[in-house]
Design a binder for these strands. Structure first.
Length: 729
DNA sequence: GTGCTGGCGAAAAAT
DNA sequence: TCGCCAGCAC
């Protein structure tokens, strides 16, 4: 079918049509915010399949998060049928690499079933190695070493090269740790996040048959958010598309916000020099925001260093002015948002349509405090992640050791967790033995009785640890399901019992988290077809390793009627009718640590641009006169980005102009506090747990606590001063 | 080896 | 403000 007749081109603007119908050769799509690039990507994919006879099997589409991958796959399926859509690879860089590595990594000498170390695991290992190598952690922190190594990997610099280039201190020490780190990762049969990309590139470079296989396999590649790819990813894409050159990259240099982890717009620049024949298509028509919002955002980005290729425009009309609110402090800022959110709702805006973006995760705290007090429902995306919580990592570490006994980092994590009398000295002796004998840490544990310097008590403690693992392993081999395995882990280790005995609110939360982990395992099992034993465990561990913050939104979408909060970085790619951008003060946003670095400052500016362009109808920019930062009060001037928003677009409001929102909230609160007294037997309502009845009361004043039996959530202990609890009858 | 306490230092974004 | 670690008592 000739391109111009395809129904898949209907309803697209001319630039979008170009992008969809240019199916062969290199294509660069510069897609401004809200310019319908997801539409372009999905229609182009469907067009390839339906009108050009490309098998979905031959299409590789790289997205930034699992969430956007899922959405894209779903939308393509909607256009061409799910039988087709399901056969494509629509996935993130990291997941695509894992899929390739699962098949090919043994070529590099690894054993099958490798483990993926997250940033925390790799930090532990680096700290341990740095200590062994005599690095003074006061002068050179493990974190700094970790980030140096990670940066090197982002640029495909291996430790040999790093070593050669190392001029003096601290590079020489970093090089030593880098080498030891790679050695230990290899022995543990583990890869860190960066290695997933690096090792895939290495495989494609070293083994022609592998390269040819994947080049043939994927006849058409598409990469989204190209401005946020790093050099390693650039080379990966270059290798994979090298045979046929059918590569479309989509990005916007003005939205590049991941420079700190190696992303560089050099990739986009190089794309045009590497492919002089590349078709360049600019999408500058915005379908998301009002002209006022676009003008405000354009004002900010115009002062940036990145040369602009197009200025966004829309025919949506002017819309409401951008509201700039000058708060007294961060409490007032939060109170203003709460008030405004209520007002918007009475005008028919759902809480779901409202989002708050901040520069740092810590800023959510005050917002949450105030929202809880005024009873405004909210959800926070990101922050301390579920899979980074201590109890989750502990239980997962057991699971990981069962899947890969060579995983030293995990073994060391759990050897004394829960406490079984194995202290630092014992661990050191075991480690020493392992290194001398050239065996893994767990092998040293098995050989505890021959380890020098271990007391009889230590030997028996270590032996019982090994026995415990063996017991779990035997059970696993009897085709135990992963959810059951998780339960066995917390039973046999006594982990759950210990938490239960604690009876603090914190411990209760941890218990809940562990149960949540079990239900995640249940879901994974249902989704992946219910593998048991080791196979099921492998599938589970894989699925919990590469989750991104935005993936939380999928679960959160089920919970309606809440204002959403997240960092500006997490907000990338999303859109909301109403957006509050908070903390617009020099030192908060832009962040202090960027103020003296022009490149970083420019990235902050792009971040502001990203944040502002998420808004569809209304944009609020707030800043506080003073706020508590780092334990003291700081007076920060309004953000320099505010100066760049054209004055005529702005509706100025502030504490001095209409009274402080914080004060009004405090007044309401005083009234409510005075008016509410709880009694045993009272019916109550909680924003999260729903209906319940008070079973007991204890403590006084600030410390007053209620024990409440909730209909759906069982018994909870709540601090009355903080709990979003109201009386009902 | 464990558990508590006080002092100190750090404090950005994330697959 | 918080989290981590050293130092100390048990």
């Amino acid at each position: 079918m000739p391109d111009h007749d395809s129904p898949l081109l209907e309803g697209l603007n001319p630039a979008q049509r170009d992008a969809v119908s240019t199916v062969d050769g290199p294509v660069l799509v510069v897609a401004g915010a809200g310019s319908g690039k997801t539409r372009v990507l999905t229609h182009r994919t469907a067009h390839l399949i339906r009108d050009h006879g490309v098998s979905p099997f031959e299409i590789l589409a790289i997205t930034f998060t699992n969430k956007s991958a899922g959405e894209m796959a779903q939308r393509v399926s909607g256009l061409v049928g799910s039988a087709m859509g399901d056969r494509m690879w629509v996935t993130t860089f990291h997941k695509a690499c894992v899929r390739i590595l699962r098949r090919e990594l043994t070529r590099l000498g690894y054993r099958s079933g490798f483990t993926i170390y997250d940033a925390q695991d790799s930090n532990r290992l680096i700290a341990q190695l740095a200590k062994q190598l005599g690095v003074d952690d006061k002068r050179l922190a493990p974190r700094a070493i970790q980030s140096a190594i990670s940066n090197a990997k982002d640029e495909l610099i291996d430790f040999e090269t790093y070593k050669q280039r190392a001029g003096g201190w601290p590079e020489i020490q970093i090089a030593e740790v880098y080498e030891a780190y790679q050695d230990r990762l290899f022995k543990a049969n583990a890869l860190d996040f960066d290695d997933l990309i690096v090792k895939t590139v290495e495989l494609l470079q070293l083994f022609d048959p592998v390269l040819e296989h994947y080049q043939r396999r994927f006849s058409h590649l598409m990469v989204d958010e190209y401005q946020d790819t790093n050099r390693a990813q650039y080379h990966l894409v270059d290798l994979l598309s090298g045979g046929h050159g059918n590569l479309m990259v989509v990005g916007d240099p003005q939205q590049g916000i991941y420079g700190f982890r190696g992303a560089t717009i050099k990739n986009i620049v190089d794309f045009e020099t590497d492919h002089p024949d590349a078709e360049v298509i600019v999408l500058d028509r915005n379908y998301r925001s009002t002209q006022t919002i676009l003008d405000a955002a354009n004002g900010v980005i115009a002062r940036g260093a990145v040369k602009r290729r197009a200025e966004l425009w829309t025919d949506r009309g002017q819309g409401a002015a951008v509201v700039r609110y000058h708060a007294d402090d961060e409490h007032d800022e939060a109170a203003f948002i709460a008030e405004e959110a209520e007002k918007l709702r009475s005008d028919g805006v759902d809480f779901d349509d409202i989002a708050i973006f901040y520069r740092t995760n810590a800023q959510s705290r005050v917002l949450e405090d105030v929202f809880i007090r005024v009873g405004l429902p909210y959800r926070v995306i990101g922050g301390v992640r579920f899979y980074e919580r201590k109890e989750i990592k502990d239980v997962l570490a057991y699971a990981r050791v069962l899947a890969n006994p060579d995983d030293d980092v995990s073994v060391r994590r759990i050897i004394n967790m829960p406490r079984r009398g194995i202290g630092d000295r014992t661990i050191e002796a075991l480690d020493w033995h392992a290194r001398r004998e050239g065996v893994t840490f767990l092998a040293a544990c098995r050989d505890a009785e021959h380890v020098q310097g271990l007391a009889a008590r230590a030997v028996s403690a270590v032996t019982s640890f090994v026995d415990l693992l063996d017991l779990l392993r035997t059970e696993l081999q009897q085709e135990l399901s992963t959810p059951d395995l998780i339960e066995r882990i917390w039973d046999h280790t006594g982990y759950m019992q210990e938490l239960h005995a604690d009876r603090t609110i914190e411990a209760l939360g941890r218990e809940e988290n562990l149960r949540e982990l079990k239900s995640v395992a249940q879901e994974v099992q249902e989704r992946t077809g219910g593998g048991l034993g080791e196979a099921g465990l492998g599938a589970f561990l894989e699925s919990v390793t590469l989750v991104s913050d935005q993936d939380q939104l999928e679960d959160a979408e089920a919970e309606e009627g809440r204002v959403t909060m997240m960092t500006l970085h997490t907000a990338k790619g999303l859109e909301y009718p109403v957006v509050f951008l908070v903390g617009l003060e020099d030192g908060v946003f832009p962040h202090v640590r960027s103020l003296s670095e022009p490149l970083q400052l420019d990235e902050e500016r792009r971040l502001a641009y990203v944040g502002m362009t998420r808004a569809q109808d209304r944009l609020y920019l707030t800043h506080a006169d003073h706020r508590t930062l780092w334990g003291g009060t700081s007076f920060n001037p309004p953000s320099r980005f505010l100066e760049d928003v054209p004055e005529e677009l702005v509706d100025l409001r502030g504490a001095s102009r209409g009274g402080s929102a914080a004060k009004r909230v405090r007044d309401i609160e005083m009234l409510e506090m005075g008016g509410t007294e709880f009694h045993v037997g009272d019916g109550v309502m909680h924003t999260k747990f729903g209906e319940g009845r008070i079973a007991a009361l204890s403590g006084e004043g600030e410390k007053a606590e209620a024990t409440v039996d909730f209909l759906d959530h069982g018994r909870k202990h709540l601090m009355l001063a903080y709990a979003p609890l109201v009386k009902v009858d």
